[in-house]
Amino acid sequence: MTLRTARRSSLVDQVIDQLKGEIVAGAWAVGDKIPPEPVLSETLGVGRNTVREAVRALTHAGLLECRQGDGTYVRATSELSGAMRRRLRTAEILEILEVRRALEAEAARLAAARRTDADVAAIRRAQACCEEALASRDRTAFVEADLAFHTAVVEATHNRVMIDLYGDFREALRAGITASLDLLEHGDIEVPHSPIADAVVAGDAEGAERATHTCLEAVFRFLSGLPSG
């Protein structure tokens, strides 16, 4: 860890900033259990009440989750991500897919115009992982591969705001994708990533946007009960 002794007057704010810094830097990943209160108190050189207030504030912000009798776990990497996770818990799957489609379609369009050789390589690697997960029918692996693929496309936009926004949305989206796959378990649904990758690599912005819509359309039709024609 990179925690350091707090020295200025606003100790609670300093501790909040340092704990948040550890989360953002990845020292504590989402799902990880953070050190207990006495350890944090000693490491930071502050009282346990100060640590307790900081943890309470980050819990309220949605970054941490206190589990009675177990400890405190990282729940999200930012306030926005935490807020979206709370909202998506009550959102309909179709609502989540609508937002996802809007973000990913625009990202694919921009990526086709801005991708670099390094971006192309990352997209192709992620595409291969998706195909491998589909072939093995490993749903858990597919969720992660699918997110990694679309993240690679988003990163190819080189739009920092979109990248950060999708990063926050991605954490909350994982549960939605898993829920969709649970419902689709007995359906014959194809999730075609190769047309998106091919269009982005070819610099075809309209084709990339169109392929992204198509990628989710079968899932939309299945979940909404619309006819496939």
Rank of each mutant, 00 (worst) to 15 (best):
R86V: 13
V191C: 00
T5L: 01
D119M: 06
P38E: 03
F220R: 11
L103K: 04
L183F: 08
I34R: 01
I189C: 03
L63F: 14
E209K: 02
E131D: 14
A128N: 11
A148F: 00
E209H: 13
R125D: 15
Q18Y: 07
R210W: 11
L58C: 03
K20V: 11
R101I: 09
N159C: 09
E65L: 10
A54E: 03
P192C: 09
V15L: 04
R139T: 14
A175Q: 05
T5I: 12
S136W: 02
L165Q: 07
L183Q: 07
D188I: 01
T90R: 00
A107Y: 11
E106N: 10
I34S: 02
T151Y: 00
A61H: 09
H150Q: 11
D138M: 05
A6C: 12
L63Q: 08
E106G: 09
S224Q: 05
D182Q: 00
Y73N: 03
R75I: 08
A205H: 08
Q127V: 09
T90M: 01
G225V: 14
I123W: 02
L88A: 00
W28E: 05
L97N: 06
V51F: 03
G187M: 00
L134S: 11
E92C: 00
L80N: 10
C130W: 03
G26V: 07
P195S: 10
E209F: 10
A76H: 09
L88P: 01
V51N: 01
T212N: 10
Q18P: 01
V30F: 11
M1D: 12
E42G: 00
A105Q: 11
R139K: 04
L173E: 13
F220A: 09
P227Q: 13
S180T: 15
A141D: 15
L184R: 05
E206L: 07
A102G: 13
V74W: 01
H60Q: 13
H186T: 14
L88F: 11
S78Y: 11
V200A: 04
C66E: 15
R86W: 09
E132Y: 03
A83R: 12
C66A: 13
A208V: 12
T50S: 06
L94R: 04
H213Q: 08
D188T: 12
E132L: 06
I196G: 03
L226S: 14
T178Q: 14
D168M: 05
D32M: 08
G229V: 15
R87L: 15
A126D: 05
V143P: 00
G229F: 15
T90Y: 11
I96L: 09
V46P: 06
A6T: 06
G187I: 00
